[in-house]
């Protein structure tokens, strides 16, 4: 496949999955403008390095990897600029119908690292296979499995605490 053909596929993919990409970026930074910035940065990076993607079948996991790394990079660079009370910020941003339910998601995710968030979101919200998540994180499947269980354990404990 030529680089031009890969670019065309990538462009189609990006347009089709922009919502999913935005939601993942948003869940890292919980801020609309920052999430848009990350999505844009990731797209530019992906287009620039698409010639290095040997197997087009991995486009999806490859792009998620770029997206996640872009977000990590962004968080590192803008550490001080992102509001520390981001849970509060998130609630203001998306004014949910049921504030209590909404709390579940953000309260839970807030306790997790970027990697843990990624595992939970991709596995349970995006229904991604563990094998594919392993590719996104560049880890082996068993490691991802172990981290998923550890994260679930952590979440469950926190959720119980929250409901008590």
């Amino acid at each position: 496949m030529t680089t031009d053909e890969k670019i065309t596929q990538l462009e189609e993919y990006i347009v089709a999955y922009q919502g999913a990409h935005y939601r993942l970026a948003y869940s890292y930074v919980k801020n609309q403008q920052n999430a848009l910035d990350i999505v844009q940065d990731a797209i530019v990076k992906a287009l620039r390095s698409i010639h290095r993607l040997e197997e087009i079948a991995y486009l999806h996991t490859w792009f998620y990897r770029i997206l996640m790394n872009t977000a990590i990079d962004y968080l590192r660079r803008h550490k001080r600029m992102i509001p520390s009370d981001d849970a509060l910020f998130a609630r203001e941003q998306s004014t949910p119908a049921n504030p209590d339910l909404h709390m579940d998601l953000w309260e839970a995710l807030n306790q997790l690292s970027v990697e843990q968030k990624t595992i939970i979101i991709l596995r349970f919200f995006e229904d991604m296979k563990l094998q594919d998540i392993a590719k996104v994180l560049d880890l082996n499947v068993n490691t991802v499995k172990a981290r998923l269980y550890a994260t679930l354990k952590k979440l469950r404990i926190q959720m119980e605490e929250y409901h008590e």
Binding site: E11, Q18, R23, L36, V39, I43, V44, L47, P96, A108
Partner: peptide, 28 residues
């Protein structure tokens, strides 16, 4: 809880600026 969270996740509103931002990045 995960089911609830999944619903909330997919309820994250997409800003109307998203499509323009994506097109801009592609064009850039």
């Amino acid at each position: 809880n995960l089911q609830n969270m999944k619903q909330q996740y997919h309820d994250i509103p997409l800003p109307k600026e998203l499509s323009d931002a994506v097109q801009h990045a592609l064009h850039q």
